[in-house]
Simulated scan of single mutants.
Amino acid sequence: MLYSSGYPSISVIVPSFNQGQFIEDTLVSIFSQQYPNLEVLVLDGGSTDNTVEILEKYSDRITYWHSKPDKGQADAINQGFAMSTGEVICWLNSDDMYLPGTLLDIGRRFQGRTDQPYLVYGNTILLYQDGEEHKAVNSQLGEPFDAFQLTHYDFIPQASSFWTRKLWQQVGELNLKYSFVLDWDWFIRASQVTSFDYIPKFYSLYRIHEAHKTGVGGEKRRQEIMEIVEIYSSSYWTDLYAIVSEHYAAIRAKSQFLKRWRVPKWQTVLLLLIPKLRAALETPQHLFKILEMYG
């Protein structure tokens, strides 16, 4: 790698499995950053679609890639970070993209800080896709850093987060037991080492589609969220998540009904319909944070 530019070296890890319809967009979004000190490692879990064909197409620009079975997304990312050399590291899932200028902005922010445990995160654009059609665009805004809030509400857009190798070494690898909250668990552990810097800029595009992992996680994903809250957060939040989980089907059904019929102040009405939940809440906003987490 060349260091004459003054920019710190960045390693982007791309975990992949059967995302051949999207991974070319992901790779192009990385290469088009024109970042001077960049390495890209793609860890594919043995895809059976056209992923390998695309990786071969870009093999002269990919620092390292393989396609073979692994133990899941966390394992692929851990492998990638272990092989990487960048002073700044991050991962981009194979259906997401970086926005133009992201890595140059990040590189500037990390100049002179690569010897510290340091993490930066920003915002992401949400792209809702149905087949080949883009249905809608929304946004996920990060929030100013709050270590306690992070224990019960994940406000960090993973695709728009970047950190030093020094921080990774101090925190340790992703936990292989998690399929859906692997990033949140790691962010919480990292927040016990250092505070993070929130940058109110858009760095990435997060694609939501038919096979989107978070969207199809269902009960298993909710169980993982509950476990994180039980491990790291307070008894109030643990109890509140448990009550919401107990009444989750009813909450969803009632809220959908109220919104469908455009009931005024439907959030207030919803709480009236579920007294046990209303009694447990310090503020109604807490319920909607949990529902946002559950999706």
Rank of each mutant, 00 (worst) to 15 (best):
Y206R: 15
S16W: 09
F31E: 01
M83V: 03
Y98S: 09
L141V: 04
G122E: 08
F162R: 04
V216Y: 07
R108A: 12
S67Q: 03
G142C: 12
S235C: 05
F180V: 02
W184C: 06
G142E: 08
H247K: 03
I125R: 15
H66D: 08
L103N: 08
K68P: 07
K135I: 12
S255M: 01
I274R: 05
F110P: 02
S139M: 12
M293Y: 01
A249Y: 05
G112S: 07
I106F: 09
L38W: 13
W186M: 10
Y64T: 14
E219A: 05
H286K: 00
Q19E: 13
Y121D: 13
Y64D: 14
L176S: 08
A279P: 02
A159S: 15
D154F: 13
E173T: 12
K166T: 10
L291C: 00
A159V: 13
Y3E: 14
N18R: 11
A190E: 10
I290N: 00
P200R: 03
K177G: 14
L205R: 15
R222N: 12
G295K: 00
K201M: 03
K68T: 03
L27K: 05
H134S: 13
I199P: 01
D197R: 14
Y178K: 10
S139I: 12
W266N: 00
D154K: 07
V244P: 00
T51K: 05
S233V: 05
E56N: 13
I89A: 15
R278F: 01
L167G: 02
P200M: 04
F155L: 03
E292D: 11
G107D: 11
F31A: 04
E230W: 07
N18E: 10
K135E: 08
A76L: 15
L119G: 14
P36M: 13
S245E: 07
G142I: 10
I290M: 00
I62N: 13
Y153E: 02
F180W: 10
T124I: 11
E224I: 08
R252P: 00
K289D: 01
Q129M: 01
R61T: 02
L127A: 07
N50C: 02
L174F: 15
M97K: 15
M1S: 12
P200D: 11
Y35D: 09
G107K: 04
E210N: 08
N123G: 09
K220S: 13
L272V: 02
R252F: 00
Q256M: 01
R222E: 06
H134F: 10
E227H: 15
N175W: 11
F22A: 06
R260T: 01
D185H: 15
Y203C: 06
A279T: 08
M1F: 06
V40P: 04
L176P: 14
D95L: 04
E219V: 05
K259Q: 07
P36Y: 11
G112T: 03
H247C: 01
E143R: 04
D154G: 03
Y58M: 02
P15V: 06
F17C: 01
I125T: 08
Q73V: 14
Y153S: 06
P100K: 12
T124K: 11
K213T: 05
A249F: 07
Y236K: 04
D44W: 12
T283E: 05
S16K: 10
F155N: 02
T102N: 15
G46S: 04
I231G: 09
K68R: 07
P36F: 06
L174T: 13
